[in-house]
C-alpha cells in the first residue's frame, strides 16, 4: 500500500487559511489503512483545523467527507456535489488522489494534506516500512524476494558493500543490511547459486528518471 503521514496543523492552516469554506476529503483505501487519511483522521484533522483557525480568528468553516478511493473517477463523482459547495478541498489522499481530484475538478483549489512517503507494509502495529521503490523493472526473483533497490541504502545489485556492522547497515545502524537478509533468504530456500550469477546493469529506463510513467493496456481500452 501507499504510506503517508499528515502535515503539521500549522502547515495545513497556512495552506488553507485564505479560504472560508473548506472540505477535508479523506480516502478509504491505502491512507485509511496507514492511519493517515481515512474517515477518523478526517475527523481529527478537521477538528484541529477548526480549533486552530478559531484561535487565529480566521473565519474558516471546515466540513468533512470521505470517499472510497480518490484515485478513481467513479468514486470522485460521488463527491461532486459536496465539492461544488466548498471554496477548496484539502485532500487526505495520497499524491495520486490529490492530482486525480485536481484534474477532475479543474476550477477548484485542491491541496495535499498528507506527505506521501512510500510503498510499504505494516511491519508491526504503528510501524510502516518501505518495501518497493516502484522502479518499473522488478528483480525480486533474483534476490529471494528482498529488494536491494529499496532496502539497501546504496542500491547495491551485485553484493554487499562491505560496510555493514553486525548485520546492520553502516548508513543506519538500526536498519538490517539488505544483503545479509538476501543471503540468509537465498540460503534458506536453496538458491544461493543466484548470487554467483553476475547481474547485468539494471535497466533504469522504466523508472522515474524519464518523467512520469504511463501503462497502456490495449486489450482493456474502449
Amino acid at each position: 500500500m501507499i504510506v503517508a503521514q499528515r502535515k503539521t496543523i500549522p502547515d495545513l492552516l497556512a495552506i488553507v487559511e485564505k479560504h472560508r469554506k473548506l472540505l477535508v476529503l479523506g480516502c478509504g483505501t491505502c491512507v485509511t489503512v496507514c492511519l493517515a487519511g481515512g474517515q477518523r483522521e478526517v475527523s481529527i484533522i478537521s477538528s484541529a483545523l477548526r480549533m486552530a483557525a478559531k484561535l487565529k480568528g480566521l473565519p474558516l468553516e471546515v466540513e468533512e467527507g470521505t470517499i472510497e478511493r480518490q484515485c478513481d473517477n467513479v468514486f470522485l463523482e460521488q463527491a461532486a456535489d459536496t465539492i461544488k459547495n466548498h471554496d477548496a478541498v484539502l485532500s487526505l489522499g495520497c499524491g495520486a488522489g490529490v492530482q486525480a481530484l485536481a484534474e477532475r475538478y479543474s476550477g477548484k483549489p485542491v491541496y495535499a494534506g498528507l506527505d506521501t512517503a512510500f510503498i510499504g507494509i505494516l511491519e508491526e502495529r504503528g510501524v510502516w516500512a518501505e518495501k518497493c521503490a516502484a522502479c518499473g523493472a522488478c528483480m525480486l526473483h533474483l534476490y529471494g524476494g528482498i529488494c536491494p533497490v529499496t532496502r539497501c541504502a546504496k542500491h547495491m545489485l551485485n553484493g554487499p558493500c562491505s560496510g555493514s556492522r553486525e548485520d546492520h547497515c553502516e548508513v543506519d545502524s538500526a536498519r538490517p543490511c539488505a544483503w545479509q537478509l538476501i543471503y540468509e533468504r537465498l540460503k534458506s530456500i536453496g538458491q544461493l547459486d543466484e548470487l554467483k550469477k553476475t547481474k547485468p546493469p539494471k535497466n533504469w529506463r522504466p523508472s522515474l528518471a524519464g518523467g512520469c510513467r504511463t501503462i497502456v493496456r490495449e486489450d482493456h481500452r474502449v
Binding site: 477518523r40 475527523s43 477538528s47
Partner: peptide, 11 residues
Amino acid sequence: LETEYFMKALE
C-alpha cells in the same frame, strides 16, 4: 476511545 473523541470534547 479514539483521538477524535478527545478532540470533539475540546472543540
